[in-house]
Amino acid sequence: MLSKYVYGLSLGHFVVDFSQGALAALLPLLIAQHHFNYAIAATLVFAMNLVSSIIQPLFGFLSDRFHTGWIIIPALLITGLGFGTLGWDNQYYLLITSCLVCGVGIAAYHPDAAKLVNGLADVNQGHAMSVFSFGGNLGFACGPITVTLVANALGISGVGLFILVGGGVALLLAHYFPAMRRQSAQHWQQKRQRESDSPVPVKDDWRHFAILACV
């Protein structure tokens, strides 16, 4: 049986990936409001996705070196702030800045959240990671239709509600984080102990990792 904390981290994954799916649905509204052409509007999606992709390995490196699990909480806040302010920005450079801020939050959340899920899963790692991935995929899928309904009902400024959503989930994970960290740390400590007791030295298999990454 999976820990309830895995579902909490999956909810956070839903929130951060929601913004990536929702941004595309906002483009027609932003085009109409600011009279952008399609190329300029598309750079907003490009900026968010580019920064989240480029910076994510850096956060993964920092996670391994400095145990930055706590970063998932500000990551949710930053993602919510970046996406929520898109409805209020009235200048192109502000829109780009909001997308970049949101991208940083997305990049910061994934490595440490996935690491925590892996630690909390114990022997059910496949199940836990599938639930975690499902949360992100569901957020990406729900983003466009949800943000369209909100914008139609409240106007484009209504996406500011996402700040409250990000903040609420951040508070939830902040409440449970000490317990999550202890449980996950115990798992990794036991794993390192088993590896140290093993007569066969454990090495990083970069060749097969590269194949998996390419796929």
Results as ranks from 00 to 15, higher is better:
His35Cys: 00
His35Leu: 01
Phe36Arg: 00
Asn37Glu: 05
Tyr38Ser: 08
Ile40Met: 11
Ile40Trp: 09
Ala41Gly: 09
Thr43Asp: 05
Leu44Arg: 07
Leu44Ala: 04
Phe46Thr: 15
Met48Glu: 15
Asn49His: 14
Asn49Ile: 02
Val51Ile: 15
Val51Glu: 07
Ser52Pro: 10
Ser52Asn: 12
Ser52Leu: 02
Ile54Lys: 13
Gln56Pro: 14
Gln56Glu: 14
Leu58Phe: 13
Gly60His: 09
Gly60Asn: 12
Phe61His: 15
Leu62Phe: 12
Asp64Leu: 03
Phe66Asp: 08
Thr68Met: 15
Gly69Tyr: 11
Ile72Cys: 03
Ala75His: 06
Leu76Pro: 10
Thr79Asp: 11
Gly80Ser: 01
Leu81Thr: 03
Leu81Phe: 01
Phe83Ser: 05
Phe83Lys: 03
Thr85Pro: 00
Thr85Ile: 04
Gly87Lys: 12
Asp89His: 08
Asp89Met: 10
Asn90Trp: 02
Ile96Met: 14
Ser98His: 03
Ser98Val: 02
Cys102Ala: 14
Gly103Arg: 10
Gly103Pro: 13
Val104His: 06
Ala107His: 03
His110Asp: 12
Pro111Asn: 04
Lys115Thr: 12
Val117Ser: 08
Ala121Gln: 14
Gln125Thr: 12
Gln125Trp: 00
His127Lys: 15
His127Ala: 11
Ala128Asp: 10
Met129Arg: 13
Val131Thr: 14
Val131Arg: 14
Ser133Lys: 09
Phe134His: 11
Gly136Cys: 08
Gly136Asp: 11
Phe140Thr: 13
Phe140Asn: 15
Ala141Glu: 05
Cys142Gln: 08
Cys142Tyr: 03
Gly143Ala: 07
Gly143Met: 03
Gly143Leu: 04
Ile145Cys: 01
Thr146Leu: 07
Val147Lys: 02
Val147Phe: 01
Thr148Ile: 08
Leu149His: 01
Ala151Pro: 05
Ala153Phe: 02
Ala153His: 12
Ser157Leu: 00
Ser157His: 13
Gly158His: 10
Val159Asp: 06
Gly160Pro: 06
